[in-house]
Design a protein around this nucleic acid. Sequence first.
DNA 1: ATCGCGATTTGATCCAGATCAAAGTTTGCG
DNA 2: CGCAAACTTTGATCTGGATCAAATCGCGAT
Lengths: 240, 240
Amino acid sequence: MDVAHSGVLEVGIPVACRSCQARHGVVCGVLSSGQLKDLGRHSLRRKVDAGCEIIAQGSESSFYSNIMSGVVKLCKVMPDGRQQIVGLQFAPDFVGRPFVRESTLSAEAATDAEICVFPRSLLDRMISETPELQRSLHDQALKELDAAREWMLTLGRRTAEEKVASLLHLIATHAEPQTATSTAFDLPLSRAEIADFLGLTIETVSRQMTRLRKSGVIRIENFRHIIVPDMDELERMISA
Amino acid sequence: MDVAHSGVLEVGIPVACRSCQARHGVVCGVLSSGQLKDLGRHSLRRKVDAGCEIIAQGSESSFYSNIMSGVVKLCKVMPDGRQQIVGLQFAPDFVGRPFVRESTLSAEAATDAEICVFPRSLLDRMISETPELQRSLHDQALKELDAAREWMLTLGRRTAEEKVASLLHLIATHAEPQTATSTAFDLPLSRAEIADFLGLTIETVSRQMTRLRKSGVIRIENFRHIIVPDMDELERMISA
DNA sequence: ATCGCGATTTGATCCAGATCAAAGTTTGCG
DNA sequence: CGCAAACTTTGATCTGGATCAAATCGCGAT
């Protein structure tokens, strides 16, 4: 995936990583090379393991990130422990909510991932000053809004089988490589996480998965690796 | 509600309305008075009846609107007719998706409403040129994104009773007037629309409504008019 | 007023998906 | 290698909400 497209340019000066122990990152910057000077010393590339919480729900976070590789899940949990994944983000998405101190959701690496971290104060200022950056973040917000609303339809009106098919379609669409019709990919989510994304239980997810396998829509290897022989067939299941 | 806050200023020159038959509107404009001159002759205020479709799903729309009064529902429908309301908008929200030709959802007046209509081409240009407008639309997009994600939690993880309580809470929160704890309001949605917003059937909505009434959380008059004696109690039901 | 029709409520029954329970599988670690 | 803990699948049963089926209510038109 072309990272430069996202408005993120990698500069490549190796530095010690301040926030994660025993790892090192490289500096990266945002948008125009004129601004790289500003940002250079304040941002860094960082590796995070699967399960690592990038932003905690209800906390104030003092930084933003760009996803360089891997998958990040956005999650809301209720006081009694019920939880719902409200979005998946892939490279080169932006993580964090501009202009607002406290996050209403948590962001957690679903797979091992690399992110590029920026201090909030700096980036907030840059957003106000550079219209292209504002526009690029506005575009991503609108894209995420479309995705969220599409998922509301899935959560509210689709059956368990359609939900699972929708998830597979979503992942397949965002995880290359794919041939013309046949697609293979690794699921970035466990069964429990899939259940939390679809508003189902793990048992139901598992059962629908076997159902799709038995009906020939997908093949499963290693729990995680999925093959979709015919994407059209998968799309037909979603009736969309 | 303070409409000027939204970046919309009403100018108040009466003109014939081009798009709706037998009605008349008044010109209104966007943001700074310097730009009003530009926009003045191209936008108009318009009354729409409940049920009127402002933007059709899958169509290209050539205008944007601002809601001056009333409630607008955003709706997605599947080929087989299942449908899901994916958002409610109140004055002074902006309706329409900047920069994208085709809408993935329909916008329909849920109540009689007044909207202020702008030609797309003009506003797209203005958005690019005026950072405050861009910023204001960016903010609304982020607000809608938060609302959509909150609703995903409701759709995926709450029970029917909690869903209905969540809806009442949402409406109560956006429809004044309210005293310290007691609140009264008119529902802008029919039972069928509530069902489509909550991912339930009308029968379940009706049953949960009576349940809330019998347990004393709400009082119902006229199907449409609801009284919440104690908002705290309603909030406790949502566990949020 | 009364009629008629659509919206709402209420009741009876059904079923998709949840819950409870028990095997497999996979992975990491001593 | 072998065991333990976590994850996944499969099975049996239960249940919240859907579906099917009547009433009842409210409202505009005659």
